[in-house]
């Protein structure tokens, strides 16, 4: 079992907010290699769920068990370990270093726990069409470009599960499909699980489990 969620409810939720949810207050088991799609209207707690699992916040009731360990018992060092080995993420708000170049933004992640050689950065950038931007400062890139940088960054480390929070919100369909292909390829080579959360159905994501939040 990779991830197990038990009766998870955000501490700040009203009881009415979890009615009809297939995740909040329920039990969810996630197996390695599963492709999970979470459809969530705004305000339903999609980003909260991802932040709970990633350890950015812990104001919830219930349990999140990652690789047989309760996240509530994790120390900062433990989170650092899982973030460099087990969990990867594409934030909705991207979270890049605006003052660093695109290449440095990617290299700083690659160096943390090198899974790919340096050349892969150029290859991925080429595939997603941002190769020419590698030496620009990330802060000067458009949202669409920044989103692709964030996607590439998430693929430069080893992981067993990748969480994508509205990963294609700033991309057109052609670019979104290219990115999806790259993510699927990378996950397949790691036998990793994908947890994709979006406002509506992304029809080019071949999910194996669909959950409404």
């Amino acid at each position: 079992m990779l991830l197990q969620i038990e009766k998870l409810i955000p501490a700040y939720f009203e009881p009415a907010q979890i009615i009809g949810s297939e995740i909040w207050g329920k039990r969810i088991d996630v197996l390695p290699g599963e492709l999970i799609k979470i459809v969530a209207p705004s305000g339903s707690g999609k980003t909260s769920l991802i932040h709970f699992i990633y350890g950015l916040r812990n104001d919830y009731n219930g349990k999140i068990i990652l690789k047989e360990q309760d996240l509530q018992l994790f120390k900062p060092e433990d989170f650092a370990t899982i973030r460099s080995k087990i969990l990867s993420i594409v934030f909705q708000d991207l979270r890049l270093f605006p003052a660093l170049t695109v290449f440095d933004n990617l290299e700083i992640k690659r160096q943390l726990n090198p899974f790919h050689p340096k050349e892969k950065i150029i290859e991925f950038a080429h595939r997603l069409g941002i190769e020419s931007k590698l030496q620009s400062r990330a802060g000067t890139c458009s949202y669409g470009e920044q989103q692709r940088i964030a996607i590439i960054r998430s693929l430069l480390q080893p992981f067993e599960m990748i969480m994508l929070d509205e990963p294609f919100s700033h991309l057109d369909n052609v670019n979104a499909k290219k990115a999806m292909e790259l993510i699927l390829e990378e996950c397949k080579s790691r036998n990793a699980c994908i947890l994709l959360a979006d406002l509506e159905r992304v029809d080019f994501f071949p999910y194996t489990k669909l959950l409404n939040l």
Partner: peptide, 10 residues
């Protein structure tokens, strides 16, 4: 941000 992307605080 460094901590968020997985750098160890120690």
């Amino acid at each position: 941000l460094l901590l968020t992307i997985g750098y160890s605080p120690s």
